[in-house]
């Protein structure tokens, strides 16, 4: 078994048992992003072997603040599996240390494959934008992640909740405002530009990056384009709601 496979198995077991592991970068400080995507690929294929399927992708580290914290200038990405897509009710026991983030999801009406995908080409492939909340979770103890840790760990995906309203984009996604509340109190605000300057630019980046792995974004897939605010801790009993201008609301309840 390769090192990448061993690491993927450790993360897979951590996810299954709900017991986090120490950072991979503790034992291998020189681990690169490419090393980490190899782990991610193994981790994802173990879940696919269990019968899951890829419904979409997520981008992470799309804000300048997060990129500076990680010492990078690009976002990262990971697959979102069918079993991770929920209606509004989630179980806290299904996560290790969940946080929530409001994001704009984009739904593809056509396949999108790089290289050379521009923001305009990305816009043409999109059927609409959807109000979404991502639950991020880490299989690494206490969220002590470096870049290679989070990439290996499926870009820290926990789950997603999306509105059922797919809104055609005839407005500037950068300027779509969002107000985020936890148990009825406003805890954050943001606008679409927080996702890499423009959620459509984030999509184009993903399509071009996936092309290097010979992966195509398929018709019907969705892409979570990145958080519009700093992540908020969430626990059992919490009610979370994101109100998007133009896209409407999306809510989740953690039981």
């Amino acid at each position: 078994m390769t090192t990448a496979q061993q690491r993927a198995e450790a993360l897979y077991a951590a996810r299954r048992n709900g017991v986090p592991i120490e950072p991979l970068t503790d034992t291998d400080p020189g681990m690169t992003a490419d090393d980490a995507y190899a782990v991610q690929t193994h981790f994802a294929s173990m879940l696919l072997t269990d019968g899951d399927s890829i419904s979409g992708y997520k981008l992470g580290l799309t804000s300048k603040a997060m990129q500076q914290m990680m010492g990078i200038s690009d976002p990262d990405f990971g697959p979102v599996l069918h079993s991770m897509v929920h209606d509004g009710d989630l179980e806290a026991s299904g996560f290790i240390q969940p946080k929530v983030e409001a994001e704009i999801a984009l739904v593809l009406d056509r396949p999108l494959k790089g290289p050379g995908v521009t923001t305009l080409a990305a816009a043409r492939a999109v059927g609409g934008a959807v109000a979404a909340i991502e639950v991020v979770d880490s299989r690494i103890a206490d969220w002590r992640i470096k870049l290679a840790d989070t990439i290996s760990d499926l870009a820290s995906i926990g789950g997603v909740v999306m509105s059922s309203r797919i809104v055609p984009i005839d407005f500037d996604l950068r300027l779509v405002g969002m107000t985020f509340s936890l148990n009825g109190s406003m805890v954050a605000t943001g606008a679409g530009a927080a996702a890499l300057g423009n959620p459509l630019t984030a999509l184009a980046w993903l399509a071009n990056t996936l092309a290097r792995h010979d992966v195509t974004l398929e018709e019907g897939m969705f892409v979570m384009t990145g958080s519009l605010h700093a992540a908020v801790d969430v626990r059992a009993g919490d009610a979370v709601r994101a109100d998007f201008d133009r896209l409407g609301p999306v809510a989740l309840r953690m039981a």
Partner: peptide, 16 residues
């Protein structure tokens, strides 16, 4: 309404 602030052409912060 979304609010986007840029400083010297770089994104500074967003809000509503």
């Amino acid at each position: 309404v979304g609010v986007v602030v840029t400083v010297n052409g770089e994104l500074f912060q967003t809000s509503s």
